[in-house]
Amino acid sequence: MPLARSQMMAVSDPFADASDEDLLLAFAGGDPRAAEVLTLRLLPRILAQAIRMLANKTEAEDVAQDAMLRLWRMAPDWRQGEAQVTTWLYRVVANLCTDRLRKRRHVALDLVAEPLDSAPSVAAQIQTRARLRALSDALAQLPERQAQAVALRHLEGLSNPQIAAIMDISVTSVESLTARGKRALAAIMAGRKAELGYDDDEPT
């Protein structure tokens, strides 16, 4: 376990039972420990959301930092009880990711070598990386709202009512967006099936 994190956790946590909102308000009130606890709680999830959509470590880290920065800046204006901090962050990260994907549409593919945990072999790792990047690039070709709805539904595994709250639309709109988005993704990905190894057996 890295040093900084273990050091942070070694301090007895006075915020153990505090909600994210309580912590945010404590941070806005000038308590720096609240920022540490919030970071440890929220950063892993938003980084995971970003890496799933972007399939690029550097970009995902930048998005995660940017999302947390927006949280810090917004803290003094947070209106209690109006929304959940996690809902707000899902929305911010989804927006930041589709911003990045939009810029990617006109840029050549850059398959940066990134470590992936617990992959069985180098060949499988390479293929997994190529597949995730292909999925991310396909998301980049969708209209942004469709890409966000599909990612929240199928990459984050959220329910339609949760997605509706995050995107501030009706559940019916979520269903429509995810259905159209998934159809569009299937059409885009169909052309890359062989290239991504879906016609053959999985590499060992």
Partner: peptide
């Protein structure tokens, strides 16, 4: 099937934040 497999692969991806990123975030907070 391919899409479902891709989605499952993506869902399984985790990337624990490293200390450098945590430090960047906390520096912003400070």
């Amino acid at each position: 099937d391919m899409l479902d497999d891709l989605f499952a692969t993506a869902r399984a991806v985790t990337l624990p934040p490293d200390d450098a990123l945590i430090a960047r975030v906390l520096a912003d907070a400070a």
